Simulated scan of single mutants.
Amino acid sequence: MPSGQAIDLQEVLVEDLGGETWLRFRFVAPQIAKGPDAIAYDLAAPDMEHLCAAVALPYMTEHALAGQVIVVSLADRVVEFGAADPDATQYFEAFRAQDGTCIWEGL
């Protein structure tokens, strides 16, 4: 990872939203947890772009998945999708795959 943190894939979800297919790549990144040594969003953002390019795009090819939106999320702990956890730190970014690269969409 560009930030140097250790990140593990939690799950990949495929969802239809408003006529588009969203692929959600959910990762656990314990070092973004609150505290003096936490990796802040500005340092974690390049990690999400890297994960899109290095994990999401190859995963899509390997599993023959197509989607209009790729969401990469980092959480400091496993959080069930859609569940509220006010103690969890979570970061999200959206991308579109174009010409073999990830284009930032912003959420």
Rank of each mutant, 00 (worst) to 15 (best):
R24H: 09
L51C: 03
P46R: 02
E49W: 13
R26F: 05
R26I: 10
A45W: 06
L13H: 10
V55P: 07
D37Q: 06
K34G: 13
P46V: 03
L9N: 01
Q31S: 15
Y41G: 11
L17H: 09
A38Q: 15
L51W: 03
G35S: 12
A54P: 04
A56S: 13
I32E: 02
L43P: 00
E11K: 02
P36T: 12
G19S: 04
P30T: 12
K34E: 15
I39G: 06
P36S: 09
V55H: 08
L51Q: 06
I39H: 08
A45I: 05
A53V: 00
L17Q: 10
L13E: 07
A40V: 03
Q10N: 01
E49A: 11
E49T: 13
G35D: 15
L13C: 04
Y41W: 10
W22L: 12
A38T: 14
A54K: 10
D42F: 12
A45L: 14
F27E: 13
Q10W: 01
K34V: 15
D16H: 03
R24K: 12
Y41R: 11
F25R: 13
L23K: 07
V12G: 05
D16K: 09
F27Q: 11
D8T: 11
L51H: 03
G19V: 06
H50K: 08
V14G: 05
D37L: 10
P36E: 14
L43T: 10
D37W: 04
A44D: 09
L43H: 07
Q31E: 15
A45T: 14
L23Y: 08
E11S: 02
I32Q: 02
D37C: 03
L9A: 05
D16V: 05
A56C: 13
E11M: 02
R26A: 07
F27H: 12
L23I: 15
A33Q: 13
H50L: 10
Y41D: 12
Y41C: 09
P36M: 10
E15K: 06
F25T: 07
A40I: 01
D37G: 06
W22K: 06
F27P: 13
V28I: 14
P30H: 03
P46W: 04
D42G: 05
A54S: 15
A29D: 07
I32G: 03
D37M: 08
A29F: 09
P30E: 05
D47I: 08
G18D: 03
P30M: 10
V14S: 04
P36V: 11
E20F: 00
I32W: 02
Q10F: 00
